[in-house]
């Protein structure tokens, strides 16, 4: 099989433009365990792709390769059709790839503003931290996500799970991302806040941002995603447009690896 094969894309995206992100034949192993094994996914501008799979399927590991947290053993990544090396989180951010990690990746001992601007602090003319501006920007971006949030001065460990998640989301959307990776972004959110995030996703989508959405909630995924890619044991079972498959069919892909006819089968599909 050729590594550059855009078969999935050609079949699911007839006649569309250049993909924003292409990940081809990505593999990574941790001490003999193949966490991701020859997985290929792609993402168009303004598209939401749901990444699904059982616990330990390799979803988080795959997107951590895109966000620069891990280095793939093999495979390649293209941004706007050009091959790039993403060897650190800094690289990913340079390409406009922002990530909301499943673990949130917050420094618990500092406040929301310090977390949102960590690594990209705003400075005064003197080269010192511009805490006032950072706090004021934080108030703005948090206002979009969680209008009731008031605890700007407290270390984020004092916040509730959902508030912490809001901070992690705020950090990802503040810097004008082109690609957003959301690894279970609503796991800790209440219904109102989850709805807010869903609205946010649709809004960002309209702005042409591509979004990888990892979630175990099939309803949510079907509401928000244009396509789903299902993983099992590190391999891609298949990719399908949400309009072409039913939730039960996708559930079948997740549980047994059985690929319905409307989906493009990947290397992890159950052979019949």
């Amino acid at each position: 099989m050729s590594i550059a094969e855009p078969a999935v894309l050609a079949e699911t995206h007839p006649g569309q433009g250049k993909p924003l992100i292409e990940m081809r034949e990505i593999s990574i192993a941790f001490g003999g365990i193949k966490a991701v094994d020859g997985a290929s996914v792609d993402l168009m501008p303004g598209e939401v792709v749901g990444l699904l799979g059982h616990n330990g399927a390799g979803k988080s590991t795959l997107i951590k390769i895109l966000s620069g947290a891990y280095k793939a053993d093999s495979g390649l990544i293209r941004v706007d059709g050009e091959e790039v090396t993403v060897s650190s989180p800094r690289d990913a951010k340079r390409h406009g790839i922002e990530t909301i990690y499943q673990t949130l990746a917050l420094a618990d001992n500092v406040d929301a503003a310090a977390n949102i601007f960590l690594g990209r602090e705003l400075l005064t003319g003197w080269g010192t931290l511009d805490d006032a501006t950072m706090e004021s920007e934080t108030r703005k971006v948090m206002g979009r996500l969680n209008p009731h949030f008031r605890r700007f001065k407290e270390p984020v460990k004092a916040l509730s799970g959902g508030q912490r998640q809001s901070v992690a989301i705020a950090r990802a959307i503040y810097f004008n991302a082109r690609v957003l990776i959301m690894d279970e972004p609503t796991a800790a959110l209440g219904p109102a806040e989850t709805k807010q995030v869903a609205e946010l996703i649709l809004q960002l989508k309209k702005q042409g941002i591509g979004i990888f959405l990892i979630s175990h909630d099939l309803h949510d995924v079907f509401d928000l995603a244009d396509r789903v890619t299902v993983m099992k044991n590190g391999k891609v079972v298949g990719t399908a447009r949400t309009a072409d498959v039913t939730q039960d069919e996708v559930l079948g892909m997740i549980i047994s690896g059985k690929c319905p006819p409307a989906a493009v089968a990947g290397p992890g599909a159950l052979k019949t």
């Binding site: 947290a69 951010k93 990746a105």
Partner: peptide, 25 residues
Amino acid sequence: AKRLRFGRYVFAIGGNPEAAQLSGV
């Protein structure tokens, strides 16, 4: 420690080294 990036990074690393690294520090 309080007014420079360096200090901010020192405290962030202490709070969560992985988070600091993932943030590009």
